[in-house]
Amino acid sequence: MYLIVGLGNPGVEYAHTRHNVGFDIIDLIAEKYNIRMNRIKFKGTCGDGLIGGEKILLLKPSTYMNLSGESLVEAANFYKIPRENIIVIYDDVSLEVGRMRIRPEGSAGGHNGIKNIILHLSSEMFPRIKVGVGQPKDGLIPHVLGRFPKEERETLEKLFPAAADAVEAIIKYGVTEAMNKYNGFKTN
């Protein structure tokens, strides 16, 4: 079984902000694979289904970004999901808009949601898909909690299907194959 977690903040005021690209991609995955995100459990909203012949649980934590690990670890512990089967999707300010990068493990790189997940899992050893949201011009917090200009949002939305495909590639072929195929991906 795989746990696929999109990071973000709950509430309409945060919908479609830079920090919520993980939620946006989970919504797209749910639509693509006919998964109903209708259960409130594990301090989040979740739904289960199949991707690549494997049972999966999609999760959008309701804990707010900085406490994402609380939600993730509850679901992982309940289903006894090994760390290598936990895929986390989140925003990355070090990548330009329209790029994504897959990593099998790594540090938080200053991302508070990832810091909290590492704290709760006691490990950096879980795959992740980082989605570029661009460098801040006027401070980090207003940047990540802000919405994209129209042109950037259009660029980003072209990336979302590739991110969903990357999740399937990780499940079917492993992180290394997914990295070979999708790292360096850039929307035009």
Rank of each mutant, 00 (worst) to 15 (best):
L3F: 07
V5H: 07
V12I: 15
R18C: 01
V21I: 06
V21F: 00
G22N: 15
F23T: 15
I26P: 11
D27A: 09
D27H: 08
I29G: 01
A30S: 02
A30C: 06
E31H: 13
Y33R: 03
N34V: 15
N38K: 04
K41L: 14
G44E: 00
G44L: 00
T45W: 00
D48L: 10
D48Y: 12
I51Q: 02
L57Q: 08
L58Q: 08
L59C: 02
K60N: 13
S62M: 11
M65N: 11
G69N: 12
E70I: 04
S71P: 09
E74Y: 09
E74M: 15
Y79R: 08
Y79L: 04
K80G: 05
I81S: 02
P82R: 11
R83I: 07
E84V: 01
I87D: 05
I89N: 04
D91W: 03
D92C: 02
S94R: 13
R99Q: 07
R101A: 06
R101E: 12
R103N: 09
R103E: 07
S107Y: 12
G109V: 04
N112C: 05
I114M: 06
I114G: 10
K115I: 06
L121A: 09
E124S: 13
M125W: 02
G139S: 07
V144F: 06
L145Y: 04
L145G: 06
G146V: 08
R147T: 14
K150E: 15
K150S: 13
E154W: 01
E157D: 08
P161A: 01
A162V: 12
V167H: 11
V167N: 12
I170F: 06
I171L: 00
V175C: 04
V175G: 02
V175K: 10
T176L: 07
T176F: 14
A178P: 01
N183F: 07
F185V: 10
F185P: 10
T187R: 08
